[in-house]
Nucleic acid binder design. Structure first.
Lengths: 259, 259
DNA sequence: AAGTGGTCTAGACCACGAG
DNA sequence: TCGTGGTCTAGACCACTTC
């Protein structure tokens, strides 16, 4: 059992905040390490001499910060930091594709993690408006839509959906579950669209309830969205990939020339 | 007053979730538009016939998703989407510095916003361990540390802290509140360190209570952190800038060659 | 069965904002 | 002053986990 402080009733900050601060400090100073169990609600109630709702409010603040996770019937635990994957901006370098490797696997290999992909679905549909816009397609033009989930060491870290114009994807392995060596970018180049550049648009937000479920994250854990558009050497957009990443599982790295 | 549904006591989902779902739907369907006031707690209590804590739990779920903000003494309101700033990866191009413009102002100008900077503080201190590491400095080496807050149209959108080795900054305007035309990058180049490239590391997380206060955001709104390191043409790191951005106020854009 | 967190009730007093 | 949300109390019953 860790040692807790006391509540200062003359303090400006309300009791639940004081409790939250003390628990937060136990975590940040390493007195409570990832995976460790916090004192139970009953223990906190008794120690601080407050009502249950007060303790729960403190715990909820920590849950909101993503510092702890509550497990029904077991207790409240310090969130164990998932493996952080650093995504370098050169991860789509042609050299890697030539070696027959998909980007996610290249990354995983570099960090010694076991990467898996599941929940793969491939359909052909009319392009959503924003995708059609990015691909310079007419409204209602059809695209091949590939969705999948990525896991690192068995933990879900990302869901991704790729859109390729049907005119490029038709008759290739892009419409198959297994896209073959080098992934869809290799297939696109085989169709005569040598890749020239990518743009990536990054932002962050809270996940939808469905994303929370698929990514197996609690409330209070934000996601990053990265929308990548691939252009061929004629600057024609050939693919859009919309990814939702568990934020604390990723650091994105970019190299920018000063020009 | 909008029309609400009722609680189905035979439903699996607990009442507070049903209430949250109904309110969420009012927002997503546009029956409650940004800035609109939700029914007050008392109204919800009366309408649904539940205790206050039940209603508050529903509202809290929406706050956690960043959909609404509570204003003490006034009510709960649908969050109005703040202006989104798109940050292009060429925003530090030398051309802009030559024109005597700082990056933030260049961006603001491009989008027609009124950009302001406040809470500027400049100190000289021993470098924190991670900063010393990035700047290739010995532990305890001194750096000039510049903190400031950026606002777009009066709304806080970012806080930033720059670190420059004292060996470069000493005796320049970098140690002044006003760094002069072109900002600190112009001053660094005047010291003989022509800039060659930048690296940027991006991730997202929940804000600390203090960041929430400075950025004036509620719980449930994530932040993006962007750590930029500037290198001169000899690949010597000359500055580290640590920024914390309100996530929904920014989209970061990067251009990546396929190589 | 015992302990944990999840949900709910029915009150209370306080601090803030607007009229 | 009045209505708003912010905080707190002291109970209650339920569902989940472990033994």
């Amino acid at each position: 059992m860790v040692d807790l402080g006391v509540i200062d009733r003359t303090d400006d900050r309300p009791p639940y905040r004081q409790i939250a601060t003390q628990l937060r400090r136990l975590i940040s100073t390493g007195k409570l390490t990832p995976g460790a169990k916090l004192p139970s609600e009953s223990e906190l109630i008794e120690h601080y001499g407050v009502a249950r709702m007060t303790v729960r409010q403190a715990l909820q603040e920590l849950r909101g910060e993503g510092l702890v996770v509550a497990e029904h019937g077991k207790g409240v635990f310090v969130r164990s930091a998932p493996p952080v994957r650093r995504l370098a901006s050169n991860r789509f370098a042609r050299a890697h594709r030539k070696e027959g490797k998909a980007a996610f696997l290249v990354e995983a290999e570099a960090t010694g993690r076991k990467a898996t992909v599941d929940q793969i679905s491939v359909t052909t549909e009319p392009a959503p408006a924003d995708i059609a816009d990015r691909l310079h397609l007419a409204e209602g033009a059809r695209v091949v839509m590939r969705s999948r989930r990525y896991l690192a060491d068995g933990v879900p870290v990302e869901i991704a959906t790729s859109y390729v114009p049907e005119s490029i994807a038709a008759g290739t392995a892009i419409t198959s579950t297994d896209t073959g060596p080098g992934g869809i970018y290799a297939r696109i180049e085989e169709q005569g669209h040598e890749l020239g550049r990518f743009t990536e648009e990054v932002t962050a937000r809270m996940p939808t309830p469905e994303e929370r479920k698929v990514l197996q994250i609690g409330a209070g854990v934000p996601v990053m969205t990265l929308v990548r558009t691939a252009f061929d050497v004629d600057d024609l957009p050939v693919e859009v990939c919309d990814t939702v990443k568990v934020s604390h599982a990723y650091v994105l790295e970019y190299d920018v020339p000063a020009r």
